[in-house]
């Protein structure tokens, strides 16, 4: 782990006490439980919804409705599947999806993460195309 990429530095410089003082002391299940309880706070599914706006590119069919409220805990993959269903796309038919006419996000990224970083005027803009548009 650390050895491969940190050794020249670690050898000459002590790591700060903040994160290391307790590494070599006795095991403490109470400490781990405290950490697990804190972790639970970040595992709760966010029930909030945000507006996702779909925009067709090139020859892609236009949707009758292009504003949808989508729960932020959904993965982008769910957005792609929703879009394919709305368009009546069959499995295997190509559909390319982009954020802000710029990039394709990883399918396992969440709507929440994408919205926080890329929302425009309170909307997450998803472009879709039948051919590759922005690589």
């Amino acid at each position: 782990m650390a050895q491969t990429s940190a050794s020249p530095d670690v050898a000459t410089r002590a790591l700060p006490a903040t994160w290391t003082t307790n590494l070599h002391l006795s095991s403490d299940t109470g400490l781990l439980q405290e950490g697990l309880d804190a972790l639970e706070g970040y595992r709760k599914k966010d029930p909030n919804k945000v507006v996702v706006r779909f925009r067709a590119i090139g020859n892609a069919p236009i949707m009758r409705q292009n504003f949808y409220k989508i729960t932020v805990s959904n993965r982008f993959q769910a957005v792609i599947q929703f879009l394919r269903k709305e368009l009546g796309w069959k499995a295997g038919e190509p559909l390319y999806t982009y954020i802000n006419m710029a990039f394709s996000p990883a399918p396992d990224d969440t709507v929440s993460n994408l919205f926080k970083s890329f929302a425009t005027d309170g909307h997450l803009i998803v472009n879709y195309s039948t051919t590759a548009a922005w690589g």
Binding site: M1, A2, T4, S5, A6, L15, P16, T18, W19, T20, T21, N22, L31, E34, G35, A38
Partner: peptide
Amino acid sequence: RTLAYPLVQGVLCPP
């Protein structure tokens, strides 16, 4: 008490 630590590229990073 320190509850958690951050790793970047496998390295324990200073605060």
